[in-house]
Simulated scan of single mutants.
Amino acid sequence: MRAPDRPSAFTGDNARDKYFTAYGRVLGELWPVPVEAIDVETRAGSVRIHRAGPAEGDPVVLLAGADGNALAWYRYIEPLARMRPVFAVDPLGEPGRSVQTRPLATGAEVAGWLTDEQVRELSVPVQVLLGARSAVHDARAVAARLAEIAPSWRVEIVPDTGHALPVEAPDLITERILTFPGQTRAEIATPVHSTDRG
């Protein structure tokens, strides 16, 4: 498939307006909590972030996968926002309210702003949940890589789930988010594990 040579965009003003109308309606119907829209400028465009929940507390950042946007997290917003500040992101290059201004031709460019060194410098607690049967990546290889560059991160491989883990196991994910980072220091010291019994 040929790499894109221009930023992702709507075909015209009419298409954009129709999409934004539908987007706003879905946001209002599915998100039962007040939401603040924040636009953050990056080197590849303006990123729309929806903020909900209290002003204080450990924040939760929700990033949608390919072909998704912040609306995909509608099942999670109400239970999470009761306890934590929540930031749901519309990724650049995907349908949503973010505005891409330069092409992102490869996966490396999409995530190019986050280098291994920047990952190592993150000082906040991080938890990663991986679907054991993802067809997109090797969950054990990803866990091993994260253990190498970010040994303090908590990484869990969830059995019997694929790449659509948020859709397949919403209750488990909500529970993991709300109880994190409450684990003990000993648990942090050995972060990579699997709940798979097989």
Rank of each mutant, 00 (worst) to 15 (best):
V158H: 00
D17A: 15
D5M: 11
M1A: 13
W73P: 07
L130A: 06
S98T: 11
T115G: 03
V40Y: 08
A150V: 00
T21W: 09
S8A: 15
N69P: 05
Q127S: 04
P95V: 02
H193F: 13
R6K: 15
V142Q: 05
H163N: 10
V61M: 12
V126N: 02
R25G: 03
T190S: 09
D90Q: 12
V47I: 12
Y19K: 09
R25S: 11
E29V: 08
T190E: 13
W73N: 07
R82H: 04
D171W: 05
W113Q: 10
E29H: 10
A3V: 09
P170W: 14
T42C: 06
T21R: 13
G12C: 09
V110H: 10
G112N: 09
D17S: 14
P79G: 14
R154A: 12
L27Q: 10
K18G: 09
A144R: 15
V119S: 02
S123D: 15
G107Y: 09
A135D: 11
R48G: 05
E168Q: 15
A3S: 11
P32M: 12
D13K: 11
R51N: 05
L71Q: 14
P191W: 01
A164M: 14
A189D: 02
L130D: 03
Y74P: 00
I149N: 02
P125E: 01
T42M: 06
D5N: 12
T195F: 07
R176Y: 10
E36I: 04
A3M: 12
D160K: 11
R82G: 01
V86F: 05
A186G: 06
M83G: 00
M83V: 14
A169P: 01
V155H: 01
G28M: 07
A143I: 04
S194P: 00
L178D: 04
V126M: 14
L122T: 00
D67W: 08
Q118N: 13
S194T: 15
D5Y: 07
P170R: 10
R82C: 02
A150D: 11
A164H: 08
A169W: 00
E168W: 03
V60E: 03
Y23K: 07
A147K: 06
A70E: 07
E41T: 14
Q100H: 09
A144K: 14
G28I: 07
S152T: 12
G28D: 12
D67A: 11
L62W: 03
M1D: 09
D138N: 15
A164I: 04
G96F: 08
D39S: 10
P59S: 12
P34L: 13
A72D: 13
A139L: 04
T179V: 02
G53P: 00
A108E: 10
A44G: 11
D160R: 10
E187A: 13
A44C: 07
F10C: 13
T21I: 04
Y74I: 02
H50Q: 10
G93K: 08
V40W: 04
E94M: 13
H137D: 03
A111R: 06
Q127M: 07
A15C: 07
E156L: 15
I77T: 12
